[in-house]
C-alpha cells in the first residue's frame, strides 16, 4: 500500500467516513470579510500612517512626473535594480543611469539583485489598515527585486490602496489562479530573536520606501 492510500485510509477510518464521501456539511458558511468604508483620501492617510509606524518612509507626489526627483534624491550614488513594471517606465525611473532594468533571465536578475543597493518595484495592491504592499510575481514583478537588495522602494498610484486584507481577499478570492507567488510585505525585514530586541534588515530589506502618486 502506498503512503497516500494508507494515510487517507486511516483518516477515513478515524472519522468513520467512506472513500469519496462528500463533506459532512457542504455549506461551510463563507468567512466574514470585514471591509471598512474608507474614501480614497482616508485610505492614503491611513496607509502612510501605518507604513511609517512600521519604520517605512512614505512620499506623496502629485503625478507621475513628480516621481523622478524623489527617486534621484533617495538613490544618490547608489545602484538599483528596477522591475519591469510599466508604471516605473511611465514615471521615468528606468531612465536613471544607476538603475538597471529589463531583466528577463533568472540567473542574471538574481546576480543583479544580489549586487544592488536598492530594489525598485511597483505593487499590485497596498493595504491601508496594515501599511502593506501586495506583490504578485509576474513578468512585470520578479520575486527577488523586493527581497535581495538592502533597500526597497515601491512606486504606485494611490488607486491601488485597498482598505485591508479582507478587501484584498474579496477582490482576489483565488490568487493562485494568477501567480505562483503572492507576497504581503508589511514593514522592513526584522527580527527580535536575540533578547526580544528589535533589529531591522535581517535577510530582506531593512529600509523600505513608498512613493504614492496621487493622480493617475
Amino acid at each position: 500500500m502506498t503512503a497516500r492510500e494508507q494515510i487517507l485510509g486511516e483518516i477515513r477510518r478515524a472519522l468513520g467516513r467512506a472513500a469519496s464521501q462528500p463533506p459532512l456539511f457542504r455549506e461551510l458558511p463563507a468567512p466574514t470579510l470585514r471591509i471598512p468604508r474608507l474614501d480614497r483620501n482616508l485610505r492614503t492617510d491611513l496607509f502612510v500612517q501605518k507604513f511609517e509606524t512600521l519604520g517605512g518612509k512614505a512620499f506623496r507626489v502629485r503625478d507621475a512626473s513628480a516621481v523622478l526627483p524623489v527617486i534621484a534624491e533617495l538613490l544618490e550614488e547608489k545602484s538599483a535594480v528596477a522591475s519591469n513594471s510599466p508604471f516605473l517606465r511611465k514615471c521615468g525611473v528606468t531612465g536613471l543611469p544607476q538603475v538597471h532594468a529589463g531583466f528577463t533571465e533568472r540567473a542574471e536578475l538574481k546576480q543583479a539583485c544580489a549586487d544592488a543597493d536598492v530594489g525598485i518595484t511597483s505593487v499590485d495592491y497596498a493595504l491601508a489598515e496594515t501599511g502593506t504592499f501586495v506583490m504578485l510575481s509576474s513578468h512585470n514583478e520578479a520575486r527577488l527585486v523586493s527581497l535581495l537588495p538592502p533597500a526597497h522602494i515601491a512606486i504606485f498610484p494611490r488607486s491601488l490602496i485597498l482598505a485591508n486584507l479582507d478587501e484584498l481577499l474579496s477582490i482576489l478570492p483565488r490568487p493562485a489562479d494568477q501567480t505562483s507567488s503572492m507576497v504581503l510585505i508589511t514593514g522592513p525585514s526584522r527580527t527580535a530573536d536575540i533578547e526580544q530586541i528589535l533589529v531591522r534588515g535581517v535577510h530582506g530589506p531593512g529600509e523600505i520606501y513608498a512613493v504614492i502618486v496621487e493622480a493617475e
Binding site: 528577463t104 533568472r106 513578468h139 520578479a142 520575486r143 493562485a176 505562483s180 507567488s181 503572492m182 530582506g204
Partner: peptide, 20 residues
C-alpha cells in the same frame, strides 16, 4: 496585525514569471 512577510505560494514559477 500581519507579520512582515506573508507568502502565498502555489507550485513552481509559471511560464511568464522571471524567477521562482
Amino acid at each position: 496585525p500581519l507579520t512582515v512577510y506573508t507568502s502565498f505560494l502555489s507550485g513552481p514559477r509559471r511560464d511568464t514569471e522571471i524567477d521562482g
